[in-house]
Amino acid sequence: MKKLTLSFLAVMMSAATATAQDSGTLAKIAERGEIVVGHRDGSVPFSYYDDQQKPIGYAMDLCAQVVEAVKTKLGKPDIKVSYMPVTGTTRIPLLANGTIDMECGTTTNNADRQKQVTFSTTNFVAGVRILSKKNAPIASMADAKGRTVVTLAGTTSVKVINAANTADGLGLTILSAKDLAEGMLTLETDRAVALIFDDVSIAGAAATSKAPADYQMSTDPLSVEPYGIMLRRNDDAFKSLVNATLEGLYKSGEINAIYDKWFTQPIPPRGINMNFPMSAQLKNVIANPTDDPNPDLYR
């Protein structure tokens, strides 16, 4: 049994080291004639399914521009685009193991994650807030003392909540849902008193829920979360192409139309309007594009 475990480990290690001298994402795309876009299945309005189970959203539109840029750069207009749903748990491993080439969702760019992956220029700035039911309102972390709260597995919010829990001795029970739908379900069925996650996403979850009027969101953000398109590390050629594409959209002002399409107008599949005008922080990023993970720069 021991021998087998060892050989199993050896396979893993050799597989990992053999890929150390990767030939780069662009070369891989050219070779296979295919680009794989990782997306979320319920992150309204960034990356989610419409009623035909096709991934759409703000992040998907930005990634579509990147795909066009890749086609132009490689001179291959017929590159096949495949879509692959990921979760908070699977997104980083699947990017690292080559299943997806970029992840277009609501992934926060932070220093911890930069140990395994890298990020494009920031394309959104969110803040972690608390969603609760109006008949049992939770306005701050202190209000949740001793109760059960839910957040999304594998997200930066886990860290934010744990930090507050330890610092203030709140004695919280923290559940990790596998995606936004499951998190919202946990709040909806009173398994938790609060859903704590990025404001724009929980606003979307509340807006698309059965009774949007039953929910309220806290006012002060617990943290600042710059989003970016997640990419493999040490692949400057691909990263600079992605950044050039985004910065081109920022400079030409096309970004405003894309933003308005998803955040201030009715969106499919049910024609809900997010009513989420562009924040000062995002306007600032668009004027001075950056891919810095330091949250203080975005405050």
């Binding site: 980083i92 911890d112 594998g154 990790s176």
Partner: peptide
């Protein structure tokens, strides 16, 4: 959870 938070799958 360890994998998700430390990325050491």
């Amino acid at each position: 959870a360890m994998q998700e938070n430390s990325f050491q799958i």
